[in-house]
Design a protein around this nucleic acid. Structure first.
Lengths: 171, 171
DNA sequence: GAATGATATGATATAACATTACATTTGCTG
DNA sequence: CAGCAAATGTAATGTTATATCATATCATTC
């Protein structure tokens, strides 16, 4: 007896589902490029590479992890290099910051206005970005009742993803 | 034309409202004591003091801020002292960790099962803990649809609190 | 009331994450 | 092409969090 009229998930997360990751990356990358162009933002080499790095995996990478990989691509191995690129991506809506992990992940829906919710697997570390129908609205509604004006939101859940859940007692 | 049948906020946050803070602290402290006793948890001197410190203000304190104050109360000035006490409080449900701030705050509803949502004022740094009717449920529903099993959640919003909003162009 | 095991604390070191500050270069615009 | 803003290079430092090992305290059983 499903009582919800609308599904809880407006856009499903790709991370937990089988998909051609090459296509998924390319797709997001192209969208990111178009977006940046339209917004007059400069997707410089470091920034572009940083985004590629984030896109390589459906998990969140720490700034120093990104920095390592940037260094391997020939950029300077100084924290600000990574933090600046990541900050740019976040501001541009091309990446998100996962506070729970002190880490960053590529946005799967660049260009679409959305309040993302993250589902973080504590076993395999994968991170899925979902856009939920009701949550952002509910937070906003509560804020209005209190007279609080929301500027930014972090919605994060940690737990076990479908894949890891299946393996249960696996090594 | 309010369309919601139930209010978005199940329990209102005290932080943004005028209240006798002495009473509010004492009240929470007593509940915490009763809770710990019933659960067979040891509310040792450091832990108790850490909780008192968190209760002193309706904002989140960093571990090192707590550590400073613990040190002033005669405890050792070593990071693990603070982190251990805070970890205990969080596990016992007497405090919450605000990931966005890398900081901790006392739980305002100890003993009551709840998924807290935090509203963080970026101007005065006050933090209000609210228990929202729909949000936890919506996250849970979405998780179920994905086959994700939630263990922990962080729902945080940053913005401007009612008090600061009123002052607007104040110095 | 000593032996034991579990829990809690003291103390040191270090890992991991993040920022400040300033010099230099690049790209755009008048 | 001069001037300005934005981006990058680089060094130093600040902040948050954990690992590790030693010691102390408490609770239980013998």
């Amino acid at each position: 007896m499903p009582q919800t009229v609308t599904p809880a998930i407006a856009f499903p997360a790709t991370a937990f589902k089988a998909h051609d990751h090459r296509v998924c990356c390319g797709d997001v990358m192209r969208r990111a490029e178009r977006m940046a162009a339209e917004a007059g933002l400069r997707l410089t080499p470091v920034r572009r590479r940083a985004l590629e790095i984030l896109l390589e995996e459906h998990r969140a990478l720490g700034a120093y992890e990104v920095l390592d990989r940037l260094a391997r691509s020939g950029f300077a191995r100084q924290p600000p290099v990574a933090y600046r690129a990541l900050e740019f991506l976040v501001k541009a809506g091309l990446a998100h910051r996962i506070r729970r992990l002190n880490a960053f992940t590529a946005c799967m829906r660049p260009g679409e206005a959305h309040v993302p919710a993250f589902f973080i697997c504590t076993r395999c570390e994968s991170v899925a970005e979902a856009v939920l129908a009701g949550v952002g609205a509910a937070m906003g509604e509560a804020a209005r009742e209190m007279g609080f004006e929301i500027e930014r939101m972090n919605l994060e859940a940690a737990g076990i993803c479908p894949a890891c859940h299946g393996e249960e007692a696996a090594p």
